[in-house]
Simulated assay, not measured.
Amino acid sequence: MSNLTKRYDPFDELFRGFFVRPVDFGQGREAPELRVDVKENDNAYEVHAELPGVNKEDIHVDIDGAVVAISAERKQEKEIKEGERVLRTERYFGKVSRSFQLAQEIDENQTVARYNNGVLELTLPKKTAVQARRITIQ
């Protein structure tokens, strides 16, 4: 009897599944994460949050002590021209939000917010720490 063996073909492995890919038509799609970078210096925190495609009027920042909450809404434009049909849409429309706590409370009155090229930049000055005092007992 002869043993039959399959010859190894590297192209077989390379192209396996190449032409057959699962297609997601947006069913069950979750909201994308709001990506945030936080840096600290002696006087303030610097926050950069990616919010591409969002109008600055649809961004809200709330500060409560040391907790910072960022929320935004991206609205879908319903502009379909006559004779045009949508074949696929992958862009996310809806609300995203993120909150995080910093190590020190924020001075809300000195906070600066800028929105440029899809990036929200926050400068969050730290509140000056109240020094503990020793009370003399009479």
Score class of each variant (00 low, 15 high):
residue 98 R to V: 08
residue 99 S to M: 11
residue 129 A to V: 11
residue 66 A to K: 00
residue 41 N to M: 03
residue 64 D to N: 03
residue 118 G to C: 11
residue 108 E to H: 09
residue 129 A to D: 02
residue 49 A to P: 03
residue 62 D to P: 00
residue 72 A to N: 03
residue 101 Q to C: 04
residue 23 V to W: 12
residue 39 K to N: 05
residue 101 Q to A: 13
residue 126 K to V: 08
residue 20 V to C: 05
residue 129 A to H: 01
residue 112 V to Y: 08
residue 13 E to F: 13
residue 9 D to C: 13
residue 36 V to A: 11
residue 126 K to D: 10
residue 87 L to K: 06
residue 52 P to E: 11
residue 37 D to F: 06
residue 54 V to F: 06
residue 59 I to K: 09
residue 85 R to F: 07
residue 51 L to Y: 07
residue 129 A to P: 03
residue 95 K to I: 09
residue 79 E to C: 01
residue 31 A to M: 13
residue 41 N to V: 07
residue 100 F to E: 08
residue 47 V to Y: 04
residue 123 T to Y: 10
residue 97 S to M: 06
residue 16 R to Y: 15
residue 131 Q to K: 12
residue 99 S to V: 10
residue 94 G to P: 12
residue 38 V to S: 04
residue 109 N to W: 05
residue 42 D to V: 03
residue 101 Q to S: 13
residue 37 D to K: 06
residue 110 Q to N: 15
residue 5 T to V: 09
residue 87 L to Y: 03
residue 107 D to V: 07
residue 30 E to V: 08
residue 6 K to Q: 13
residue 53 G to I: 11
residue 39 K to D: 04
residue 81 K to Y: 09
residue 15 F to G: 06
residue 35 R to E: 14
residue 35 R to T: 15
residue 102 L to W: 06
residue 21 R to V: 13
residue 45 Y to P: 01
residue 25 F to H: 11
residue 50 E to R: 10
residue 87 L to E: 11
